[in-house]
Design a protein around this nucleic acid. Structure first.
Lengths: 249, 249
DNA sequence: CGACTTCTTGACAGGACTCAAACTGTGTGG
DNA sequence: CCACACAGTTTGAGTCCTGTCAAGAAGTCG
């Protein structure tokens, strides 16, 4: 029997607590990770008004696809999502995983059309920000614009790192980097950096890192043999952060 | 002797014409590709005032590096640049090539620090936009903010495509995609889509596409043998656009 | 409890990398 | 203006990492 039964609460649990209450930004526990950061009280109330707090999405359910007319960008409220871009021949690339407080759909602003597909990885919910209303609001709220730019820029800088990963790193380095990235993001959200559940499949991970499923599976096994991690299905526990960091290249 | 001696003017030539005059936005030929697009006359004049039109950069000269304090973002005025991110062990990834009218340094906004290094690929010049002044201006100029977001989003969406390329495409598909991307951008700027000069080295191309120099060199030779392109040193002429498109995957 | 999906493990093959060497172009200094 | 040095490019040979194919195990869901 593994110790992993008793792990940090999942984002899903957060959903139960917060989604049911549909908390306003002021009371949302994601406040300091989210868009409202730095807005003054009055501005915050206005922003709060335009946010649609949607029903939840179940595992596999699309948030939007390239076919969906563009109206809104989204912030993950609970759970997690993946985005993909796909070619005519059916090949797909998982371009990102998104956790609570992170923006989805920012690449749609230019061209006013979704350029990727977003799907829930587990039971999840989002805050929907109608883009036209966001722009109207931004016209009289410079701080909001600053925040938005900052968000876009952050994703940009993450994508550059990902390009380095895809272009220059070995399979081993890719997976180690991935694990630490997830770990850090869990930590930022107040969860354990050491023990968590991977909401995405091996296939999604492999695809995202530009690897074959089999390679990911083999590496997980090897990392486990070498005492770096403990992994059972989707439960993962990081045993040796330092060695893992050393593998990141 | 090749026919390529007499090609469309290079961006470099544009530099000679325009840079010497230091044209204001209103008269700049890049207007419709650049930030000012959609600004009203008065706003445009104000934007124009904060732009520093810098001296030119020569081949290999850095525009900024991760060591440079962040103060400005840049728009290429003439010539071309590359950006790279690098790891501690010296490995580098060329994250992008930038042509006239394109923004460099957008990923620095978040964290207020350059996350990548930018170098001129040929004799080039830029318009420098001090970021604090840009923000002040944006506070009273919603259109400008919209433009900025749009720019950030465009780069984001380009990066997603690049992630697909790096993660899922074969060497052949990568190079074909690259050639057509450059071709399209030349065309957008009023140059020939069929004949142009590659300002970047084989090494830069290879690195950017996640390939070895040798692979790129071999593929160029093969594309030439198959009548897809004509390439001599940095001069390239596209012979069969359709076949090239078919190779993009 | 069965049908299906996801994951793991093994054997094998191939595309792209590495190493090596020759060739070409460029720029510099005498 | 030429000779030399050096960076960039091309081409060949050999190898290895990672993908592909295959089959079985484990997990999931109705």
């Amino acid at each position: 029997m593994t110790q992993l039964g008793n792990v940090t609460p999942l984002f899903q649990d957060l959903a139960k607590v917060e989604h049911e209450h549909n908390l306003a930004c002021q009371e949302c526990s994601l406040y300091r990770l989210c868009l409202p950061l730095g807005l003054h009280n009055n501005d915050l109330i206005q922003l709060d008004k335009i946010i649609k707090r949607s029903q939840s999405y179940s595992r596999g359910q699309p948030l939007f696809s390239t076919q969906t007319p563009f109206n809104s960008i989204y912030v993950v409220r609970s759970g997690s999502f993946k985005t993909t871009v796909s070619a005519v021949d059916g090949r797909e690339q998982v371009t990102g995983f998104y956790f609570p407080g992170e923006f989805v759909g920012l690449d749609a602003i230019y061209e006013q059309a979704y350029r990727s597909n977003a799907k829930a990885l587990e039971s999840s919910s989002v805050c929907e920000l109608p883009f036209d209303m966001l722009q109207e609001l931004g016209a009289n709220m410079p701080q909001l614009q600053v925040q938005m730019m900052s968000r876009l820029s952050k994703e940009l800088s993450g994508d550059k790192s990902l390009m380095f990963l895809l272009g220059k790193k070995t399979a081993e380095e890719k997976l180690a980097t991935f694990l630490l990235s997830i770990s850090r993001r869990f930590q930022d959200r107040g969860f354990s950096a050491r023990e968590f559940q991977l909401s995405m499949s091996r296939g999604d991970i492999a695809n995202h890192l530009g690897l074959a499923v089999e390679t990911v599976s083999r590496l997980f096994s090897r990392f486990q043999d070498e005492g770096l991690i403990d992994i059972h299905n989707k439960s993962i526990s990081i045993r040796d952060v330092e060695k893992l960091k050393a593998l990141c290249g």
